[in-house]
Amino acid sequence: MDRNDTELQELQKRLNYAWRDPGLLRRALIHSSYTYENREQGEHNNERLEYLGDAVLELIVSDYFYRAFPDKSEGELTKMRALTVCEPSLAAVARRLELGRYMLMGRGEERSGGRDRPSILADAFEALLGAVYLDAGLEEARRVALRELADIIEEVRTGHAMRDYKTELQELLQRKAADPIRYSIIDEQGPDHDKTFTAVVEYRGKRMGSGRGKSKKEAEQQAAKMALENYPDRH
Rank of each mutant, 00 (worst) to 15 (best):
D2M: 08
D2V: 08
E7T: 05
E7R: 11
E7Q: 13
L15A: 04
A18H: 12
W19V: 00
P22Q: 06
L24F: 04
R26D: 03
H31A: 13
N38S: 11
R39A: 14
E40A: 13
Q41R: 15
Q41C: 05
N46Y: 12
N46V: 06
R48Y: 04
R48G: 01
L49G: 03
L57A: 07
E58W: 04
E58N: 11
L59Y: 11
V61N: 01
D63T: 10
D63C: 00
Y64R: 03
Y64L: 02
A68Y: 03
F69D: 00
P70L: 02
D71G: 02
E74V: 10
G75A: 06
E76S: 09
T78Q: 13
E87K: 04
L90W: 05
R96Q: 11
E98P: 06
R101H: 14
M103C: 15
M103V: 14
M105T: 03
M105F: 09
G108W: 08
R111S: 11
G113A: 14
R117S: 09
P118A: 11
L121N: 06
D123N: 14
D123W: 10
A124I: 06
L128M: 08
V132R: 02
G137S: 04
L138E: 03
E140M: 11
A141K: 04
A141T: 02
R142V: 00
R142L: 01
R143T: 05
I152Y: 08
I153F: 08
E154L: 14
E154W: 12
R157A: 14
R157P: 02
T158R: 13
T158D: 11
H160R: 15
E168I: 06
L172N: 09
L173S: 06
K176A: 11
I181W: 06
R182L: 13
S184T: 12
P191S: 00
H193P: 00
T196V: 15
F197S: 00
F197M: 01
A199G: 01
V200I: 15
R204S: 13
G205T: 11
K206T: 15
R207F: 08
M208A: 06
E218A: 15
A223H: 02
A227F: 08
L228V: 02
N230R: 12
Y231F: 12
P232G: 04
D233C: 03
H235V: 09
